[in-house]
């Protein structure tokens, strides 16, 4: 039998072990650095925003007429858009999630189109569709409906157009994930389509519905591009919080930053509550024998 290569002695093994240990340390270090840089990049601007002015100036900024008007407009328009989105979007998503029909994939693609469309383009599109000189502007005035442009209705429409696809997409996926058997059984137990939707499908999809509704709501609160082009920016009627940030940018940076901090706080609150809801939901039904309603968020 031939001995292994003479140079492959103990010292050599030691050296190799050293190199591999060094390699592991280097990889660990690189990982830490990459994570630190990414976190810093994402967090520093927010930290700068919050610490830009003394706290009492910041809070004072929330209370100005200018800010409270924008808060009211934002809350009102987003609340209306949210309710419309849930009422019309949920049955729509259920139909798309549970039924197979020709042209279904086309509809699915159309639903996602506003997600990839620049919001300013969406605003333009709404304007040429529903503006006074737009495609349906004449129809609206013929029907005696006041034109929405520069009114609060236009803000609601802009938010719906830009934000509701986030809800629809998540809701369709959530309904799709429901075990068919459960809906079948509900039918044999005497439940009509309305009871199947409200008592079986919606509760089973609730995790996904809640999470995607929260994302859509957050997107709606931050809506800017479509709103400014379609609804304009009038204090007290169409000027939402994001429009107010832009409007005050030239006039008073302090004021703009106050409103910006408010928006960050609202978004963070929505994000956190969505994650918390999703977590509570999955932990209460996660051992479910069905493959239904897994949320798109997880909280570790």
């Amino acid at each position: 039998m031939i001995a292994p290569a003479v140079w492959g002695g103990r010292a050599d093994d030691d050296a190799r072990a050293w190199v591999s240990a060094l390699g592991r340390v280097a990889v660990a270090l690189a990982t830490v650095v990459v994570i630190a840089v990414a976190v810093a990049f994402l967090l520093l601007p927010i930290a700068a925003l919050v610490t830009y002015q003394p706290l009492h100036d910041l809070i004072h900024g929330f209370g100005t007429k200018f800010a409270t008007d924008a808060i009211k407009v934002s809350l009102r328009t987003n609340a209306i858009a949210f309710v419309l989105m849930i009422i019309f979007g949920t049955p729509f998503a259920y139909a798309l999630g549970r039924r197979r029909f020709p042209g279904r994939s086309v509809v699915l693609t159309l639903v996602e189109l506003p997600l990839v469309m620049p919001p300013a383009v969406a605003g333009l599109a709404l304007l040429v569709a529903f503006g006074p000189l737009g495609l349906f502007g004449g129809t609206l005035s013929a029907l005696g409906i006041p034109n929405p442009v520069f009114r609060q209705a236009a803000v609601v429409m802009a938010i719906l157009f830009v934000a509701s696809p986030f809800y629809l997409r998540g809701a369709i996926a959530a309904f799709e994930a429901i075990d068919e058997t459960l809906l079948d059984v509900a039918g044999t137990l005497g439940a009509g389509s309305m009871r199947r939707l409200l008592q079986v499908a919606v509760p089973l999809a609730a995790g996904g519905l809640g999470a995607s509704a929260a994302v859509a709501f957050a997107r709606g609160i931050g809506e800017f591009g479509a709103t400014i082009l379609f609804a304009g920016s009038f204090q007290g009627t169409t000027e939402t919080l994001p429009l107010a940030v832009y409007g005050e940018f030239d006039a008073s940076l302090d004021q703009a930053i106050s409103i910006g901090v408010l928006l960050v706080a609202v978004s963070a609150a929505i994000l956190l509550s969505a994650k918390l809801l999703a977590h509570l939901w999955t932990s209460s039904t996660s051992t479910s024998p069905s493959r239904g309603g897994r949320s798109i968020f997880t909280l570790r």
Binding site: D184, V185, G187, T188, L204, S288, P289, S290
Partner: peptide
């Protein structure tokens, strides 16, 4: 006749109990 009007007591393979 639709399923909800037939009055069949249907037990699927894994019983189809509502997990919620």
């Amino acid at each position: 006749l639709s399923a909800e009007r037939r009055r069949v007591g249907y037990l699927p393979q894994d019983y189809g109990l509502f997990p919620h």
